[in-house]
Simulated scan of single mutants.
Amino acid sequence: MAGMAGMAAPSEHNLAEPTHFPINAPKEMDWTFAGPFGTYDKAQLQRGLKIYKEVCAACHSMNLVAFRTLEDLGYTEAQVKAFAAEYEVQDGPNSDGEMFTRKALPGDRFPSPFPNSAAAAAANNGAVPPDFSLIAKARGVIRGFPTFVFDIFTQYAEGGPDYIHALLTSYDQQPPAGMEIPEGTHYNPAFIAGKSLAMAKPISDGQVTYEDGTPETVDQYAKDVAAFLMWAAEPHLPERKQTGFQVLLFLALFGGLLYATKRKVWANVAH
């Protein structure tokens, strides 16, 4: 999934050229973690982790996410330790002052597949694949008036996952006649920064096997990895929502008590 930030293509400014991006706005999806009482589906997060490992990790790091946090997805400590050991990380210096590589431990973070950004750009048509730690919070399409007003009351915060899903499922569309797509880039009407980007279509139907019988389609893959990336960006989202509800409930009760106290104290005072 190299270069989700991608590389915008220069415009030729003819009649078929778009004047805004994305060309097609993301569709608002039905996420389990949406709304004031939303929570994560651990089975979906596990499938999303599988997508990340088998597809995305070839180009994208998650250098803010530690392996030990995967226990939140329902894995045991032993499973997390075994999962981490499948990766290698750089450590050191040793007693000779040299850096060395070793198998990752649960306390380590998901490593980058490239030694540096220059190597990453050279391997991806000049575009450095962004780190995925916060991608679900860093990406999203601005929703104009009056939609953003309603978002305040519905607590819509799923713009990132909606965008990721839209981007991954929009590759098979063809550009309008007359629109020129620069060589080495790929048309995607859901891309937020241009008409095409450096990342080629990263996944196809049946590419990743699900052991739980979930449909192995691009649409499902996109939903699962988008949900996983949302968890990576905000792992304590359900707890935050629960705390927020408790605070609002407390404020409502406290406000009611204050009002009742005020009425009692001033009941016999002449106005």
Rank of each mutant, 00 (worst) to 15 (best):
Y210F: 15
P182Q: 07
I51K: 06
E98T: 03
P129C: 10
V269F: 09
I23M: 14
P175A: 03
A127L: 00
L257W: 12
I203M: 07
T101Q: 10
G126N: 07
E98I: 04
R47Q: 11
D151Q: 11
A198H: 03
K195Y: 09
L248R: 14
Q246I: 14
F145S: 03
W266S: 00
K195S: 13
R47G: 03
D41H: 03
W231N: 07
T69G: 00
P22K: 08
M99C: 01
A118Y: 03
N125S: 08
D172F: 04
P182M: 01
P93E: 09
D131P: 12
A270N: 04
N268E: 13
A16G: 00
T19A: 05
F110L: 15
A198Y: 10
Q90R: 15
P175N: 07
P115M: 05
A233F: 00
G107I: 10
L229D: 02
T39D: 11
L257D: 02
S196T: 11
H186D: 04
K223H: 13
N14G: 14
R143A: 01
Y40F: 15
Q242S: 13
P18S: 03
L229A: 02
V55Q: 10
H60Q: 05
S61V: 06
L168N: 10
K264Q: 12
D96W: 07
I142S: 14
A85P: 06
G92W: 14
V89C: 06
I164P: 08
D162F: 09
E77P: 03
A252K: 07
Y221E: 10
L167K: 06
A138M: 10
D96E: 15
K42L: 13
D212A: 10
